[in-house]
Write a protein that binds this DNA or RNA. Structure first.
Lengths: 251, 251
DNA sequence: TTGCTCCTCACGTCACGTGAGGTGGC
DNA sequence: TTGCTCCTCACGTCACGTGAGGTGGC
């Protein structure tokens, strides 16, 4: 039989069969005078075995190993490994689908943004901040920063603190006022007289659990990470942040 | 910040970041005099967004679409599609794992062979045939053929018939005798006098549900598929099969 | 002559990993 | 000088898909 007949009988493409020849998974059969490959029953059975193994999820290399191994010693090991791998994949897919379901649920209420693709507690927190301070540019920046933090490490504890803080109307009103004052500095000069007072007010308003641990004497702008965020602020705003950190580190 | 700082902050490789530049998913930032790339907070936020989206399972192209689309119109569609895709994958993995579990269960009893990677009913049938006719070369051939059939189409009905047939000790004894006579012809000449009688005995022993529907007058050897299997038999054995088919087609 | 099957390159897919060979900052 | 980070090619991965350009059988 010819390659097309072989391939359709087993349910693979002719290109797949040629690929199996190239990598040595299937022996090259003899040719007719015109160059056509000629297959026999043995080839058919072997290709069917290959297909059953790859359908199980074996790689072509693994299938070759199993078929070369008459005693079948390798098969159980490969299968056990494969099952562990599939179990991992299954768990991963389930997790993704849970997050997708949450996202789609949120999407029903309004437009979706890339920053909604975040863990459920952070998504909730971002929602609350957005609702409480809808017009503050600084609040928007903070939300972006929180979304970023969610993807990189352990933000669980501060996020919980912030969520609880958002439950208290008095705190929310106080934060709104601080956001307003910070927003106002977007167009202020570097030596604006409001900088110092705002820095002290924010520094004392932030509870200890939310304050980053900063070595006194360290140069904030030397940290490439912090520096990148400072450069994104207006000069007076960046100065507020520097003085905040200074107050926390006891300088 | 430099590429390494950016990459570790977000949890990807520097190579991935360069890849995102190449495909335009992340803008190329400005360079320092020595050629080093310099990143700012905006880059950090964008890369974090990319990572969250790809972690959800979006392709890089899809992530680019979502990030380019400020209104977030595309995200729900992409997510819905993605979820459907993941649901398919999950079902597929579950099916595979079921088959793997069955296989590993069988493996506990003895060595595993590639032909064990077959649907449960066929696996059961192969077991029974192997146990009932352990020394027959023809039985081995039939098992291989059944394993092949399992992968290519609708073998459910004949498999059920065969499994029931194996429940009847009288039938099994009769088949064992036919296998023995067929095996004997492996070394016989083409014109062996036993051919005709065996062909008639097998032809009448096979119940109608197991007989292939063959047009009278069709040349068996012209079918590349049948021809391949006939070529695998000894001449006298092939002749038995040809006469069997002849008897069924009324010739 | 037309349509079908077959043949051999050889590039494309997807998201990077992995050297190869070299330079810059401490 | 050593070790670390960065740079740019450019090939490799996995299992084929997809033309490109051509031939053989009915």
């Amino acid at each position: 039989m010819r390659i097309g007949e072989l391939a359709t009988a087993v349910g693979v493409s002719t290109r797949a069969v040629r690929h199996y020849h190239r990598i040595g998974l299937l022996p090259e059969p003899r040719r007719r005078a015109n160059g056509y490959r000629v297959y026999d029953a043995r080839d058919l059975l072997r290709l069917a075995r290959v297909r059953r193994l790859t359908e199980l999820g074996l790689s072509l290399d693994e299938a070759a190993d199993v078929l070369a191994d008459d005693e079948g010693r390798e098969l159980p090991e490969i299968l056990a490994e494969l099952d562990a791998d599939l179990a991992r994949q299954e768990a991963e897919i389930r997790q993704r689908r849970e997050r997708l379901a949450a996202l789609l649920h949120r999407g029903a209420a309004g437009p979706l943004h890339a920053d909604d693709a975040v863990s459920p507690p952070v998504a909730d927190l971002l929602d609350r901040i957005g609702a409480a301070f809808p017009h503050s540019d600084t609040a928007r920046r903070d939300r972006e920063f929180l979304a970023f933090l969610d993807g990189s490490g352990d933000a669980a504890a501060p996020v919980e603190l912030l969520r609880r803080a958002m439950d208290d109307p008095e705190t929310v009103a106080q934060v709104a006022e601080l956001y307003r004052r910070f927003d106002e500095l977007a167009t202020a000069a570097a030596d604006d007289p409001r900088v110092d007072g705002l820095a002290r007010d924010i520094a004392s308003a932030v509870p200890p659990g939310l304050r980053p641990t900063i070595d006194p004497g360290v140069d904030l702008d030397a940290d490439p990470f912090v520096a990148a965020f400072l450069r994104d602020l207006a000069p007076a705003q960046a100065d507020v942040v520097r003085r905040m950190f200074g107050a926390w580190s006891g300088r």
